[in-house]
Design a protein around this nucleic acid. Structure first.
Length: 463
DNA sequence: TGAAATGTTGGGGCG
DNA sequence: ACGCCCCAACATTTC
């Protein structure tokens, strides 16, 4: 029996898996392999919540595979060594893997391809980064033309159904999937493609048609909540885009259609940032815009800690940062507000924030996270202009009007009346005493004055 | 996928 | 009736 190795990285699914399909078409049986790479597991950009979600995802995939044949083989080590051993051990022909486009993944793939018959298959994105380029072959660096070109590309075909039966080589020794840490009980995402599909269906059923407005509301569940699943490929990009297009086609009024389009646009942003990191790997180290590579950051450690722990005295920022620590996820609007506060109000290097987010986000993805931070800091491609500074009070009033989001994550403020929920430092002192929330004692006073901070960052960026 | 400063307009109060 | 002021509402520009 001929065997192909299916090297799994961030495609933890059996449905719409083109690498798996390619492996099945090449050989009579497959060996599904996941390699735990110590280089990744010990990186300062990886945290325990994302690892817990990965391990839970591996268990879910193992189950899904067992129902269709036999299970997943997990081994630790340098993937090139592990694959070389396995390749020899089982006498495999080809190794098939969904191409990953991050600089780290590409170096790894290139090392493997020099020694092994590795075939890289598309699927991480709907359109590969090297395909969506300008007529002269250079990459897009502005989103709108990129999205136009992306939409102009031919649809690569409908998502593949999950195979009922996957002929799998059994009996190959593997390791146990590591247990998810106890913290995983606090993760509000169940891993696996069944759950991903359930969430997608629920979102498409209803919420996608209100996405245009409600996606910005931090107190509502207006977003898809699919980012962890897209991050690990428990849902494929093509499955998500197909659902968005279907929702667009089925919309019964202009507003619903606009909402579905807006969600599709967000999926295209994901592909845009994957393409940016692919074409400009240096954005991982430094600002895309050379003029903004030597900003005079203040980088005060106490400020950074206050931000990271959710003790800035600005309720919406603190709620955002505590949502991250508690749940491993943060609302996108909250990410922008928190990132603007760190870079613009505190003048802390965006890379500090980028690393913190990567350590705590379950959906932490090098391309999207870097793109988001550079966008906010104004240093990136198609970035927010440097003078676009979020006012944490105005944003809070607009996108958490009753303070429900704040009260959910900042319990000290539970009894603060709506009038003061966005600006608790303005409470009269007798009210503070009365409700047991004394500013400076029970809840911090603002660590910076936004108006002054605004002036400061404008002069620094101008310089 | 901002916010603040500045400019313009028009209604209403008032002498 | 008229000019003047105030100011809210909206538009434009500036950072």
């Amino acid at each position: 029996m001929s065997t192909a190795i299916w090297w799994i990285r961030r495609d933890l699914r059996v449905s719409d898996n083109q690498a798996l399909a390619a492996a099945l078409s090449r050989a009579e049986q497959v060996l599904p392999v996941f390699v735990l790479d110590p280089k990744l597991l010990n990186s300062s950009y990886v945290g325990e919540k994302r690892l817990a979600f990965l391990y839970a995802g591996l268990r879910a995939l193992d189950n899904d595979l067992r129902q269709r044949g036999s299970g997943l083989v997990v081994r630790s080590g340098d993937p090139v060594h592990v694959l070389t051993d396995l390749h020899r051990e089982v006498g495999a022909g080809a190794i098939l893997a969904e191409a990953d486009h991050s600089p780290f993944a590409r170096r790894r793939e290139q090392r493997a391809a020099r020694l092994l018959p590795l075939h890289l298959i598309p699927g991480l994105t709907v359109h590969s980064p090297h395909e969506v380029v300008k007529a002269d072959g250079t990459p897009y660096t502005v989103f709108t033309p990129f999205s136009k070109a992306w939409l102009g590309h031919p649809w690569p075909g409908d998502p593949l159904p999950a195979p009922d039966w996957i002929p799998t080589l059994a009996g190959v020794m593997g390791e146990d999937i590591p247990p998810s840490s106890p913290l995983s009980v606090q993760i509000p995402f169940q891993a696996g493609e069944t759950e991903a599909q359930r969430r997608l269906d629920a979102f498409i059923e209803n919420a996608v048609y209100n996405y245009g407005d409600e996606r910005n509301r931090m107190d509502l569940a207006g977003t898809s909540g699919l980012s962890p699943y897209l991050r690990f490929g428990m849902l494929s990009a093509r499955q998500a885009v197909a659902a968005a297009r279907q929702a667009e086609a089925q919309a019964t009024d202009a507003e619903s259609r606009r909402s579905a389009e807006t969600w599709l646009n967000e999926l295209i942003w994901r592909e845009f940032y994957i393409a940016i990191l692919y074409h400009f790997p240096s954005v991982r180290q430094t600002a895309f815009r050379p003029a903004l590579r030597n900003l005079s950051w203040v980088n005060n450690l106490d400020d950074f800690d206050a931000w990271a722990q959710g003790r800035t005295g600005y309720p919406v920022v603190d709620a955002a940062m505590r949502q991250l620590l508690q749940t491993g996820w943060m609302h996108n609007r909250a990410r922008m507000i928190a990132a603007s506060f760190l870079t613009k109000d505190l003048l802390v290097d965006w890379r500090w924030g980028e690393r913190h987010f990567m350590q705590h986000l379950i959906d932490g993805d090098p391309a999207a996270n870097n793109g988001g931070w550079q966008w906010t800091a104004g240093t990136g491609t198609d970035a927010a202009p440097y003078f676009r500074i979020f006012n944490p009070v105005t944003q809070s009033q607009k996108f958490d009007p009753d303070g429900a989001f704040i009260r959910r994550f900042v319990p000290e403020l539970v009894n603060v009346p709506n009038e003061f929920i966005h600006t608790p430092w303005k409470m009269p002192s007798d009210l503070q005493t009365q409700i047991g929330c004394r500013i400076g004692k029970d809840y911090p006073a603002p660590i910076v004055d936004h108006q002054l901070a605004r002036e400061r960052v404008l002069s620094v960026y101008k310089a």
